[in-house]
């Protein structure tokens, strides 16, 4: 699966969405849109959030699934929360 680039390969600034296209009728929309915060996170962070939602938000289940201790998983979640807060600012 191709990874959505989120930062400029030249200056490393955050990229924005300029063009969207309908696969069905080829309608194109041009504009300048911010990427959603979740899309800017790393692949591993996005996977963590997906797994966390699938586990009904249970850190205990996440810890069992990842083979890590409860506080390690909670610390990982804290890191992602900090990153999302930084993005919001």
């Amino acid at each position: 699966m191709k990874k959505l680039p989120t930062s400029c390969p030249s200056c490393e600034s955050q990229l924005k969405v300029k063009q969207l296209q309908c696969e069905n009728c080829s309608t194109e929309v041009l504009g300048l849109y911010e990427l959603p915060h979740l899309a800017v996170l790393s692949n591993s962070d996005q996977m963590f959030i997906l797994d966390f939602v699938k586990a009904s938000g249970s850190l205990k289940l996440m810890a069992q699934k990842m083979g890590l201790s409860y506080p390690s998983v909670r610390n990982k979640l804290d890191e992602i929360i900090d990153r999302l807060k930084d993005l919001e600012e």
């Binding site: 083979g67 890590l68 201790s69 409860y70 506080p71 390690s72």
Partner: peptide, 11 residues
């Protein structure tokens, strides 16, 4: 070892 060990098991 605490990346894998904590909680009741550690106690």
């Amino acid at each position: 070892p605490y990346n894998r060990l904590a909680g009741i098991r550690a106690i």
